[in-house]
Amino acid sequence: MYFLLILNSFLTSTGQLLLKKSAMTTHGIGIVEKILNLYFLSGLAFYGISTLLWIKILEYIDVSIAYPVMALSYIIVMLGAYFIFGEQISFFKVLGIIFILIGVFFITK
């Protein structure tokens, strides 16, 4: 079940990165065009799939464990933003990643 939880983090993160790409490609246009943007629709689809998977995960894992593990999404999005959008990763962001990983480790024990 933890595999599905990690998969869900990747699905959620992919949705977020697609919505960021949508925001970048639809800057300054109307709401209808934003809604019909392929990146926007794809981002929503990933969010929808991750929500359905999330419901399934919660059937088997306590929410007090599952939700904190979703903090891995912060790391995935940061790395995705670095590689896809060229966003910078500072020392403090790396430090934050380390703290997130330590927290997830302890919560799942």
Rank of each mutant, 00 (worst) to 15 (best):
M1T: 13
M1W: 07
Y2I: 09
F3G: 10
N8C: 13
N8H: 08
S9D: 12
F10W: 05
T14I: 14
G15S: 09
Q16G: 04
Q16E: 14
L17N: 02
L17E: 06
L18A: 08
L19N: 03
L19M: 15
K20Y: 08
K20G: 08
K21I: 11
K21N: 11
K21D: 10
S22C: 08
S22R: 00
A23H: 05
M24F: 05
M24T: 08
T26K: 00
I29A: 06
I29H: 06
I29P: 04
G30R: 04
G30P: 06
I31G: 05
V32Q: 11
E33R: 07
K34M: 14
K34W: 12
K34T: 13
I35T: 10
L36P: 00
N37W: 09
L38H: 11
Y39S: 14
Y39L: 07
F40P: 04
F40M: 15
L41Q: 14
L41I: 15
L41N: 09
S42D: 09
S42I: 08
F46Q: 01
F46L: 03
Y47F: 15
Y47E: 10
G48K: 05
I49V: 15
I49K: 03
S50H: 07
S50Y: 09
S50M: 11
T51V: 14
L53K: 04
W54S: 13
W54Y: 15
K56W: 14
K56S: 11
K56A: 11
L58V: 11
L58I: 11
E59L: 09
D62I: 02
D62P: 09
V63P: 00
S64Q: 10
S64G: 10
Y67K: 02
P68R: 02
P68D: 11
P68A: 06
V69F: 02
M70V: 05
M70W: 01
M70F: 04
S73A: 12
S73G: 10
S73Q: 12
Y74Q: 02
Y74I: 05
Y74C: 00
I75M: 01
I75W: 00
I76E: 05
L79Y: 03
Y82M: 07
I84A: 05
E87Q: 05
E87P: 00
Q88C: 02
Q88H: 11
I89P: 02
S90M: 03
S90I: 05
F91K: 12
F92N: 12
V94C: 06
V94G: 06
L95W: 12
L95C: 13
L95V: 15
L95F: 15
G96P: 00
I98N: 07
F99R: 04
F99E: 08
I100P: 00
F105L: 09
F105V: 06
F105Y: 15
F105Q: 04
I107L: 12
T108E: 07
T108R: 02
K109W: 03
